[in-house]
Amino acid sequence: MTESLLSEAFAEGSIAIASLPSAESSLRVAGGLLEISGRTDAPYTDAVVAALHEFGPYFVVAPGIAIAHARPSESVFSVGLSLLVLREPIAFGNEANDPVRLVFGLCATDHDGHLGLMAELSNLLMDADRVNSLLNAGTVEDIRAILA
């Protein structure tokens, strides 16, 4: 299956590998990667962090995987994804799926323009081998190759 939407969604500068001290700081970085790669500006990242405080860590959707996002707004310029691979796992407070190792940032301009992309993301996250490869990737280039 070709996943062209997925590789397009990760713009230049949207992927990083890091060690961070907390759930909130990892959301700031995942949001920051969307900003750096030109898909959002700072208020969107603030909204992503605010969602954690408002709704809790519900967006940790599978073991080790968080999908950080906020509502479509004027701070979103185009649909995009970012990926922060955490060197050290972080507990988000999600009993079933902690600790988190992969933090995806997601932004969309409306409620249905990104559905094809979400289908590709879903296929990726259902593929245990590729998820495992992302977890063990040594460099951003390795990650790009897995997402291509």
């Binding site: 969602a51 996002h69 409620h111 979400m118 996250l125």
Partner: peptide
């Protein structure tokens, strides 16, 4: 249902 209606709920709907 999710907090925002664009991420987690969309993934859940598809599955």
């Amino acid at each position: 249902v999710c907090g925002m209606g664009i991420g987690t709920s969309v993934l859940l709907k598809m599955n």
